[in-house]
Structure formats: structure tokens, C-alpha cells
């Protein structure tokens, strides 16, 4: 079977080399101290930071994808999501906003909040809408930087359930988390990042 994501000798001046293979629907969890290169690794995979080496999606080299197409397929969700318009709904296209409204209740969010302005929402609500922003694209790989970092236990469970759901429909997940128990609940292969290198944990 062709790997969903194949990473060979991926490196930059600050991290790597990384070698990793990810099956469709597989989940990988990365723990490690801050500054160890976890975020950098995700950003390199999303091609947001320059890197050398090879990454292939479903057997096709990253260099053969236009950069925006690659990022829509291998989608990065930052730990502190950025926003570029006033209301939540203006961060979605007309089609994806329908899907966003359907997804919201599963994450414990009132769909009416879509019309609210970004500034009115709590940090946790914003983080979940940022996750929805990525999910509605139906990417092949989700790169999640502490997706439950600012959530309470109830919301964390809902996020985990939604993530497990999309993994079972074939989306592979690379997740940075501070919580080893979360990695176990998602049945993830676990790694530890230490000074820019990945070690099996």
C-alpha cells in the first residue's frame, strides 16, 4: 500500500533530519519540551518554512504540487490560530460555512456563533473554530499544534471524538500534544521531539 505521507531526510537549519511514514487514517502524537522543534516540524511539513529533503503525499512528491494545493491537502492548524476578518463566518467560503455549521455542535459550539465577531469569542471557542476551518477542507493530512491546549475536559473529549471520526474516514493526523493520555486515547503512535530530532516514545 502507498503511504499517505512519506518523509525522507526532511531537514532545515534548525531541525531534522526526519524520516517517517504515515498510513491513511493513522495518527501520530509528538510530545517534547517547548523549543524542541515540534512546531517547526509541522510547519516544515506544511511547507510554511523552507526545508530540504523529500515529502510525498500518496506517492507524489511535494515539489509536484503547487504550494497552495499542497497546504490545502496537508493542512496546518496553529496553536494560536490567526484570523484575518471580523466575523468567524467570513473565514469560510459560502460552501464550507454550511459544513462548519454542521460540525459546530459536535465540538460543543453553537452554530449561531459563526456570525459573531472573532474578538467576542473565548480562546477555547476560537481554537475549535480554527480546527473546523481545517476540517471543512477535508485534507489528507491534518497537522495539529496542541489542538486542545486551551480547552476544558468536556471540550477536549469532543475534539478527540471528532478527530477520531475524521481519522476513521481516512484523514491522517500529526499532532503535537503535552498530554500522553490524549495520544493513547486516539490510539496514536507516539514520538518525542528532542533538540530537533524525533525519537519513538
Amino acid at each position: 500500500m502507498i503511504a499517505r505521507l512519506r518523509i525522507e531526510n526532511l531537514r532545515s537549519a534548525h531541525a531534522g533530519p526526519f524520516n517517517l511514514t504515515l498510513a491513511p487514517g493513522e495518527c501520530i502524537a509528538i510530545t517534547g519540551q517547548s523549543g524542541s522543534g515540534k512546531t517547526l516540524f509541522l510547519r516544515m511539513l506544511a511547507d510554511l518554512d523552507p526545508s530540504e529533503g523529500m515529502v510525498a503525499l500518496d506517492g507524489q512528491d511535494r515539489r509536484r504540487y503547487p504550494a497552495p494545493t499542497w497546504r490545502a491537502r496537508v493542512t496546518y492548524c496553529a496553536a494560536e490560530p490567526g484570523w484575518w476578518a471580523d466575523t468567524i463566518v467570513s473565514h469560510f467560503s459560502p460552501e464550507t460555512s454550511v459544513r462548519a455549521a454542521q460540525l459546530a455542535p459536535a465540538l460543543g459550539l453553537d452554530p449561531a456563533l459563526l456570525k459573531a465577531s472573532v474578538a467576542q469569542l473565548s480562546t477555547g471557542e476560537r481554537q475549535r473554530f480554527a480546527l473546523i476551518r481545517g476540517l471543512v477542507l477535508k485534507p489528507a493530512v491534518l497537522l495539529l499544534d496542541e489542538p486542545t491546549g486551551s480547552l476544558d475536559t468536556g471540550s477536549t473529549e469532543r475534539v478527540e471524538w471528532v478527530l477520531a471520526e475524521s481519522a476513521s474516514s481516512g484523514t491522517s493526523i500529526v499532532m503535537v500534544t503535552h498530554n500522553p493520555a490524549q495520544a493513547q486515547r486516539l490510539g496514536a503512535r507516539q514520538f518525542r521531539m528532542q533538540s530537533g530530532r524525533l525519537h519513538p516514545a
Binding site: A46, L48, P68, T69, W70, R71, A72, R73, T75, Y76, C77, A78, E80, P81, G82, W83, W84, A130, R133, G134, L137
Partner: peptide
């Protein structure tokens, strides 16, 4: 953050 959030979404 806003610009890179857009880039990350393709």
C-alpha cells in the same frame, strides 16, 4: 498570524 493562517489553508 492572519496571513499564515490563510496560507496554511491553501
Amino acid at each position: 498570524p492572519g496571513i499564515e493562517a490563510q496560507l496554511a489553508l491553501g
